[in-house]
Design a protein around this nucleic acid. Structure first.
Lengths: 123, 123
DNA sequence: GCACATAGTATCGAAACGGATACCACCATG
DNA sequence: CATGGTGGTATCCGTTTCGATACTATGTGC
């Protein structure tokens, strides 16, 4: 679901840049990774509470892709009611400098007025 | 053209991360920015030669969006044949740590087999 | 006078994206 | 017996993306 982007990474050294972008791109992956770096472990519905606008379909989707890319781990507990925990793999955790660089730049250059970045859906 | 992503950045502190992603995301923006950091100034067709798979339509599009976001500058010389130069604005140049972080991670974790990242279209 | 290079634009249409909605199993609680 | 919470899946369907193709203007070289 993460935009097909490039079949071939035909951009010479720029490839590396594109390659990471391909992993992080996806409507909600940035936020998901960010939250996982902060919280360590999150359950499905915990994500939904953190990001009220994401639909279950999309959340599943993004998490599955991140898992397929080896960035997040998915642990299912054989319980009823079900319990599934999402966390960062080692590879995922290694993205920290990247996420940090993104956050640092955003904080410095984006000037999100506080109040626009509320957790509430503010419908 | 850069995927609508989120109307509201309702992800609390993660917003900053998403915000930057919104600027860098776009099928070719990562590579464009990377090349501009390396080369300083590039002309339209120079980009096309560096990225043989991008169509004129898309290239125009990505450059225009980057320009609208204040990351690249576009200088038109009143000549015939036309000459248009693209470069980084100060804001664009400030993205360097971000691009660098992306590239560093990509180089370390992606293992692009050399030969797959050729400049040629290798049709 | 024809082709080539410059830097694009316009239009078509197929494919992908992604929201809305309904639905699943299972258990606990009231 | 119904309702709520868990973690999803399936389907429909409008919207967006983006490649392909054709086309523009002007000046130079052959």
């Amino acid at each position: 679901m993460a935009r097909v982007r490039h079949k071939r990474l035909d951009c010479s050294p720029g490839c590396a840049v594109e390659g990471v972008l391909q992993l992080v791109d996806g409507k909600w992956k940035g936020v998901i990774l960010y939250h996982l770096l902060e919280q360590d472990v999150l359950r499905f519905n915990a994500f939904r509470r953190l990001m009220p606008n994401v639909t279950a379909r999309m959340l599943t989707n993004q998490l599955r892709e991140l898992e397929a890319d080896g960035l997040v781990t998915r642990t299912v507990y054989a319980q009823v009611p079900p319990k599934v925990e999402y966390g960062l793999s080692e590879r995922g955790r290694s993205l920290e400098p990247v996420i940090t660089a993104l956050k640092r730049w955003g904080d410095a250059h984006l000037e999100l007025s506080p109040g626009e970045d509320s957790l509430s859906d503010a419908a």
